[in-house]
């Protein structure tokens, strides 16, 4: 099993991620304390802030807004965060395969 990164002290900058409670989509803790679906808009914490940052995410979990908050180590490429682990890059960008995407229909009558 892969799963979220193991709980060990961060040595790289981190972003805090989780899944949205209502629809399950991947979300990132933003600078304003809210959650964004866009990693580029996520707040990046220094490694020594990681524990404090995660506590913020977990508080949101207790407030029933998100599920499964954890810290993801990232590197900054020209200021844009990119997760170090492949799994987290995939979470950030969505499936790598083109899966006949189409919008859901309006509510049926």
């Amino acid at each position: 099993m892969s799963g979220p990164a193991k709980a060990r002290p961060a040595t790289q900058p981190v972003a805090i991620t989780a899944n949205d409670l209502a629809d399950g989509r991947v979300v990132w803790l933003a600078a304003d304390g809210g959650w964004t679906r866009n990693l580029a808009a996520a707040r990046i914490f220094a490694p020594e802030e990681a524990a404090h940052a995660l506590a913020q995410g977990q508080a949101a979990e207790r407030a029933r807004r998100v599920v499964g908050a954890y810290a993801v180590e990232v590197e900054l490429l020209a200021g844009v965060p990119r997760p170090l682990r492949f799994r987290e890059r995939l979470r950030a960008t969505g499936p790598s395969v083109d899966a006949i995407p189409r919008p859901a229909l309006p509510i049926a009558v």
């Binding site: 099993m1 892969s2 799963g3 492949f86 995939l90 499936p95 790598s96 395969v97």
Partner: peptide
């Protein structure tokens, strides 16, 4: 890994 939380690697694009 394109969908599954337990996965350690992708399967679908390899199959493709």
């Amino acid at each position: 890994m394109d969908y599954c939380a337990l996965a350690t690697a992708r399967s679908i694009p390899v199959a493709q």
